[in-house]
């Protein structure tokens, strides 16, 4: 499999998009850390990049790359190569290149200008979210033969996790505000990888005290080893589960 991953990454690097993405992230990060006074405000802006831009780019790029690799996949299919190897290679090739570009793009400025635990959390979350959303994108792409529809599905999934899901949870919280809904909040947040990453990062920042009582409860949990293992385990699950489903579908699909 590593041989094929190598070719997928090789192909992505030729594309130059990933280099542009890396430079874009680096430029913005340097800009935010350099221009804005107070690291808390610039960290919040970086948080938005990790939570909005990284998933969006991952979803769109992975979907487009999947469709553009159709020829390559077809070529491989007539070779003595497992189908699962092909789709896993696509997954790891794309997510590794994207997260590598992200890690360099955001990591280098952070090392120079903003060392600290929050920066580590930002980088790790960005990397994991890349894997998660490439995985989600491939699930969308493998289900539809039409490129436009596939991209549409992926964008919809991105928007679902970015806004729609949270909106629904807020609506539920608002409607059931008389009930002790806090208990279920951890479940609600765990079901959305973006929320999970956001809360994990915010709880490392001094902004966390604004989150009130619930925030304090969460803070205690997420800063314990159990919480850390729980959160990272869930995020990994988010990266793995859609991919397993994708492989299952890809193996049975007519190509």
């Amino acid at each position: 499999m590593s041989r094929i991953i190598k070719y997928v990454m090789f192909d992505i690097l030729r594309n130059r998009f990933v280099i542009g993405y890396c430079l874009f992230i680096m430029l913005i990060t340097f800009g935010l850390l350099g221009l804005e006074e107070g690291s808390s405000k610039s960290t919040l802006s970086l948080l938005n990049i990790v939570l909005l831009v990284v998933p969006l780019i991952s979803v769109v790029f992975a979907t487009i790359h999947f469709y553009n690799s159709y020829e390559f996949m077809e070529l491989l299919l007539s070779q003595p190569v497992r189908r699962s190897t092909i789709i896993y290679s696509e997954y790891f090739g794309v997510s590794c290149s994207l997260s590598f570009a992200f890690a360099i793009g955001m990591g280098v400025p952070l090392i120079f200008l903003n060392q600290g635990l929050v920066s580590v959390y930002l980088l790790l979350s960005g990397i994991v979210l890349t894997f998660v959303f490439v995985s989600i994108a491939l699930l969308g792409a493998v289900n539809s033969k039409d490129k436009a529809r596939g991209i549409g599905t992926s964008l919809l999934l991105w928007f679902f996790f970015t806004a729609i899901y949270d909106g629904l949870v807020l609506l539920i919280m608002f409607s059931f505000s008389d009930y002790p809904i806090e208990k279920y909040l951890l479940a609600f947040i765990s079901l959305n990888p973006i929320d999970l990453a956001r809360v994990a990062i915010l709880l490392q920042m001094d902004t966390a005290v604004l989150m009130g009582y619930t925030g304090a409860v969460f803070s205690e949990f997420f800063n314990s080893w159990e919480g850390l293992i729980f959160a990272s385990g869930l995020l990994l699950l988010w990266a793995i589960l859609p991919m397993l489903l994708t492989v299952r579908i890809f193996k049975r699909k007519d190509l």
Binding site: Y70, E71, F72, E74, S78, Q79, P80, V81
Partner: peptide, 17 residues
């Protein structure tokens, strides 16, 4: 999948990366 090492396939339209 391994049997495919014994097959050479030339598709109707050649598509390469």
């Amino acid at each position: 999948w391994k049997y495919r090492e014994n097959i050479g396939y030339m598709p109707q339209l050649a598509k390469f990366p």
